[in-house]
């Protein structure tokens, strides 16, 4: 059987992916947020495993991570919360986090738990391509997990091809040189970048992340890409409006 991510990407629609930090706003919101997102037509969910030192994240996700950790979120608890998730949720689920908590849990144990629960992939921005290929690719494969790599406007064509070769789901296309939550919008530089990537004719579809916060940026990002990811803007919405109003947020996107 193919992985749910690969299935989803075959559908003829633009993917809306939402990131949220597990354990935020409240410790036990995880399952409810996932359920609400699926109910409101989200195609793919990235569940953030909070980390004390999230290097690639801007203030919004940093603060949500700190709150989640203070609330008591930890790796084993997240797995515990998710253990029955496949009884109710069928869209692809990805765990996104930093490498150290996964490394401490044990990479193979972590991947095995993911498979048991029905997690489809991982995004670990600070696990570099060469280390993944050398030490972990076979483990990910064994447990049916898709590993998602990032590319940025500065990534060379040569390296993008290497990343494409190592990927079997989608490529996370970071929209600009920034940490998460940047709001500079999508101008000419992004359009040129998107066009350059399209011209490479990669085997993996691309999903755009960073800087998508409303319908306009979602439309622009998905003109050439297969989908787009919203993180910081969703977390801000949760902070202000709470978990009850998730449908309001999704309606503003599409």
């Amino acid at each position: 059987m193919k992985n749910r991510i690969q299935h989803k990407l075959k559908e003829d629609k633009k993917i809306l992916s939402i990131y949220f930090t597990a354990g935020y706003p409240a410790l036990n919101d995880t399952v409810r947020i996932i359920g609400e997102l699926e109910k409101n037509g989200v195609d793919l969910i990235e569940i953030g495993l909070p980390f004390s030192d999230p290097l690639a994240d801007g203030p919004t996700i940093q603060e949500s991570s700190t709150t989640a950790l203070n609330n008591g979120m930890h790796t084993e608890l997240l797995f515990e919360q998710l253990k029955d998730i496949r009884k109710t949720v069928s869209i692809p689920l990805i765990i996104m986090g930093y490498f150290n908590p996964v490394f401490q849990y044990g990479v193979e144990d972590f991947c095995q738990r993911c498979q048991e629960i029905g997690i489809d992939g991982l995004i670990l921005p600070d696990l570099p391509l060469d280390v993944y290929l050398k030490d972990y690719a076979s483990i990910f494969k064994k447990y049916g997990l898709v590993n998602v790599f990032l590319i940025t406007p500065q990534t060379s064509a040569e390296r993008i091809k290497e990343i494409d070769e190592a990927s079997d789901g989608f490529i996370y296309m970071v929209s600009s040189a920034s940490t998460t939550g940047a709001t500079e919008g999508f101008g000419l530089a992004q359009q040129n970048y998107f066009a350059r990537i399209t011209a490479l004719e990669l085997k993996n579809p691309q999903i755009v992340g960073f800087g998508i916060n409303n319908s306009e940026t979602f439309q622009k990002a998905t003109q050439s890409a297969a989908g787009a990811i919203i993180g910081s803007a969703f977390i801000k919405h949760l902070t202000i409006n709470g978990v009850d109003s998730i449908s309001d947020f999704i309606k503003t996107i599409r």
Binding site: F99, P125, D126, P128, V131, L150, I151, T155, S156, R159
Partner: peptide, 11 residues
């Protein structure tokens, strides 16, 4: 050692 960095820092 090594370089465990997000892709944004690779270049």
């Amino acid at each position: 050692g090594g370089a465990f960095i997000p892709e944004m820092l690779y270049p």
